[in-house]
Amino acid sequence: MTAEALTTILIAMLGGAIRVSTPFIFVALGETLTEKSGRINLGLEGNLVLGAMVAYAISFQTGSPWLGVLAAGFSGVFLGLMHGVICSLKKVNDIAVGIAMMSFGIGVAFFFGKPYIQPSAPRLESLPLGGWSSNTALEQALEINPLFIVGILIAFVMWWALANTRVGLVVRMTGDSEPAARAMGINPIKVRILATAAGGFLAGIGGAFLSLSYPGSWNEGLSSGQGLMAVALVIFARWNPLRCIIAALLFGAAGALGPALQSVGISQGYYFFNAAPYILTLFIMVAASGRNSARAAPGELSIAK
């Protein structure tokens, strides 16, 4: 392999990492927030797909993609609230409810999404941040969607808020020790419902990116399990919003490996390289099962008990 081909691959992976990571960032941040409060929402794949459909539909109907993004967020709040409320009933397991919510979200999206498969909706415009470069490939890679930047900002805000605000401490307290929260007169159920709803909002926005930016249209095969992989990613990120960015970029880059190799003419094993993110998920789950991760897990999570 020549140096030129290697550069091409690396640039393609950089571009891929930035493009593909955005939904990962949003879903992972949403899941981090929910898990910090002591609940697991495995249903974020449903939020992602429903968010994608709603964003596309609203963008098509109103002509404003940003209104679509907002609507996608609220569809996520709807699913999150449902998950939060159902899990607050006695003897209900959040994992089982999450899987049911995933099927429910996807089903609703497919049901209402049929009429929007053909038409073309206005998309979110990317910001050309690579104008300074003479390398067209790099220029293309640096066409960054504003949602990517918003996601990174949210990660920093969440990281700061968890340590420096009352709300942040209350969420961490509820997630780590329910008796402590109760002793301080905090209602853990309320905190968890709100945290799941807020997490759902973020996951819904992640879905908007899928239909309004990349790949950039609505169809039923739009998501390839990003919502589920994001849950693994949260464990890898040890419930730290900033690490979520790094983890999401890593997954994005792995996802871009197949197309990048193809772009320099290596098409052998294309499907194998396309499976890179899934293989990475497996390895990360094994690698993350060590000691540090167990300590970082919020104490009230059903998997940590």
């Binding site: 009352r166 401490l169 209350v170 961490r172 307290m173 780590d176 020790s177 008796p179 402590a180 929260a181 002793a183 301080m184 919020p298 104490g299």
Partner: peptide, 16 residues
């Protein structure tokens, strides 16, 4: 049984 939040520091536990 302690009602401290294990993942919070002593200062955070007191302020919250």
């Amino acid at each position: 049984h302690f009602t401290l939040v294990p993942c919070l520091t002593a200062a955070e536990n007191m302020v919250i």
